[in-house]
Simulated assay, not measured.
Amino acid sequence: MEKIKILYVKHTGLLFMTIMLTLNANAQTDDATLPHKVSHAEPLYMDLVRDLGARKGEKEINIGVDFAKNRDYNEYAFLIEYEFAPVHRLGLEVEADFSFFKRAGGDAEIPENKLECLRFSSQYSFLVSTEHQATLAVGYTQILEFIGFKNYGDDHLIKGVAYNPFFIAAKRWGSDFHTLVYTGPVAEQDLAENITTINWLINTTFHYTIPGTGHFIGIEINKEVEGGRFQMTLRPQAKIKLNHRLAIGLVTGLPITEAREGSSCFFRVIYEP
């Protein structure tokens, strides 16, 4: 009887080891079939459509709150976005932006409260180099701009359309330092007046990831050329990873070229289901 028990234990242990080795082999095979991906620290204010080098099945939900102080009014903005990767390297995103305004004092005219816009974006990473720790991507954003809430039913719902093709280049320096450039034209079409204007976005970011954590600190420099006029805002920022699914982002906006604009603060909740 004792021999039978010993044989049973041995065979059970052998079976358990075989199962574990098989599962581990399958996991290694699955990992081996995934495309290469370089981990980049990405901007928090003008975030990307999806991680650079996205892998099929990745998805993320973001909720953002922005408070900006201007000379004549305060702005409270909210956004919600959903992004996902239907195939390797391709990211898709849908975003809704809302804006609400409160007069700071006096009788100055202020913008209308509204659903600011809907954004439909795509992004494809066409080069991922683990050797050079770099990723290149192209993308496109279609923006629908809406009228104020109080004008619903009295005017056309969509007041403008914007077209934004863009290019992204990201580089990781060693294990902890990251740089990224996001640039492209934005063609804005006013549907009521049938006027189209073209602006340029040139955004650069510099980040440092804290070793052994998912946290980072850095700065995002948002630059825009609008009607021949250059505008720039510095956005120091930090990302705190609470667990493998949830993170929060904190951003401060410091306008450099616009005297009428005050500082702003932005808060983002990032959830990966």
Score class of each variant (00 low, 15 high):
A54K: 13
N70K: 02
H88T: 13
P86C: 10
E116N: 13
E109S: 05
R89V: 01
L52M: 08
E131Y: 14
C117V: 11
Y140V: 03
D66R: 11
Y82W: 05
L115V: 10
A68E: 04
P111H: 14
Y73G: 00
G64R: 12
A137F: 10
D51L: 06
Y124S: 12
F84P: 03
L115Y: 07
G139S: 03
Y82V: 06
S122G: 14
V49Q: 04
F98H: 15
R71V: 11
R50A: 15
L48A: 13
G57L: 02
E109T: 02
V49K: 00
T135E: 14
Q142Y: 06
A54Q: 14
V128S: 00
R55T: 01
L127W: 10
A54W: 14
E95D: 11
T141I: 02
P111D: 11
I61P: 00
R119C: 00
K69I: 00
F126W: 15
A104L: 09
A108D: 14
V138H: 11
F84Y: 13
Q133A: 15
R55F: 03
S121R: 06
S129E: 06
K102Q: 03
E112S: 06
T130K: 04
Y73Q: 08
G91D: 02
K69T: 07
S121N: 03
V94T: 07
I110Y: 03
V65M: 14
E116Q: 13
E75N: 12
I110L: 04
G57M: 06
L118P: 05
T130N: 11
A104F: 13
D72I: 03
V138M: 15
P86A: 01
S129V: 10
A96K: 01
V128R: 07
H88P: 11
V87T: 14
K102R: 09
E95M: 10
G53E: 05
E81F: 08
R71H: 09
F120V: 10
A108H: 09
Q133S: 08
E75L: 06
L115T: 11
A134D: 05
N74R: 08
G139M: 03
F78Y: 08
R103I: 12
Y124V: 00
F78Q: 08
G91Q: 10
Q142S: 04
S129M: 09
E95A: 04
I143C: 02
E60C: 01
P111S: 07
F98Y: 13
F101T: 11
K59F: 02
R55D: 03
G57Q: 05
G91Y: 00
E93T: 15
Q123R: 04
F101M: 07
D47S: 12
E75H: 04
A108K: 02
N62H: 15
L52N: 07
S99L: 07
A96N: 07
